[in-house]
Simulated assay, not measured.
Amino acid sequence: MRNFLIPIFCILFSLATNAQELNATVTVNSSELPQGDLPVFRTLERSLNDFVNKNKWTNRVYKENERVNAQMIITLSKYESNRFEGNIVIQSSRPVFNTSYETPIFNYKDGQFSFQYIEFEPLVYNENNYSSNLVGVMAYYVYVILGMDADTFSLEGGSEYFKEAQKVVTQAQGTNFKGWSNTGKDRNRFELVDDLLSNTYREFHVAMYNYHRKGLDILGDNNSTGKQVIAGTMKLFEAIQKRRPNAFLIQTFFDAKSEEIKSVFSDGPKVDVVKLKETLNNVAPLFRSAWDDIKY
């Protein structure tokens, strides 16, 4: 019996340790291009899915049901001589405790995406060596996704992953590709991870944890308390707003959360929506139409 159990244990252990971090779908949309049906686009899509999902990005052991759900949608606007230009939309989500609901965590569009790629070339990430802009951008967003997800489960849980993303930025700054520089007016990859690691925006990480772990995750068991926590969490953004008006991270949060917040407060136990809407209109006025749908 012991000899039988040992190989079974080894197989199960191997499966557990080999489980990767992401359950992601990468889509390459070439429909805008006149040569959009070329095989290279499908090859690129397959290679990117393997790169994101089969690489081991951390030292953590993820169970299959712990893998982070994500989508990366690359829309190409130009292709010529192995040079690609376009944008990439990154979306991630996580399940809410005791529900079948997936809450959006990160929803971001990066319009400064260009790279070179030769069909069938291997995509290899080395944390100590910048190999290509394609690999750099994809690795950067993998770590941002992992960091955002970890922030929702433990206070400042994403810091180690944001530091890995920052390493990519540092390596990429010696290139001519857009999105990595700390100069210019456009918000970019440099600014995003710099803000995520800055003490100036410490309340953002508290908000991510409180909103998800202390708010959403208890809604099923205690709807009233969960709503009160979520409503209180919105006050944290006021501190950031006073310090840094129109902060990048505030916009990032509400890009992902505006519709969900509206839905949370659309029915069930009442909270003081007068003060809530006042806070929301102050910290996220771009989403005023969503806040107008929250009824008194």
Rank of each mutant, 00 (worst) to 15 (best):
F162R: 03
D221Q: 13
S31R: 10
L22P: 03
I230A: 06
A16W: 03
N281K: 14
I74M: 13
Q241N: 15
G179A: 11
Q71L: 07
N23Q: 13
L5T: 05
S266M: 08
S100E: 13
T99M: 04
V229K: 05
D110L: 04
P285V: 04
G232V: 05
L48P: 02
V169C: 04
I250D: 02
T27P: 00
E203P: 01
T252N: 13
F253P: 03
F287D: 08
G174N: 14
V168N: 07
F51C: 10
T225F: 11
A247Q: 06
Y130W: 13
K257R: 12
Y141F: 15
G268T: 10
G157A: 10
I230T: 07
G111C: 01
D293C: 02
Y79F: 15
S131N: 11
N210Q: 15
N128H: 11
G147P: 05
P34C: 02
Y101L: 06
L123D: 03
I240R: 09
S181K: 14
L134S: 08
T27D: 02
S31D: 14
L134A: 07
L216P: 07
T58H: 09
Y141P: 07
S159R: 14
D195A: 15
P122D: 10
L236N: 10
R42C: 00
R243F: 03
R244N: 12
P34T: 08
A19E: 13
E102Q: 15
N59W: 02
M1K: 09
V40G: 00
N87F: 11
K235L: 07
V26C: 04
V26I: 14
V96G: 03
D272H: 10
R189L: 03
K54A: 10
E119A: 13
S258C: 02
S114V: 01
R244Q: 11
P7V: 08
G111S: 14
N82L: 02
T225V: 12
F287Y: 15
N210C: 00
A290F: 13
M72W: 07
G147Y: 08
G36Q: 09
S93E: 11
D50K: 12
N69A: 12
Q251A: 10
G232I: 07
M148K: 08
D195E: 09
M148L: 06
D217F: 01
R189N: 06
W57T: 09
R288W: 01
A247Y: 01
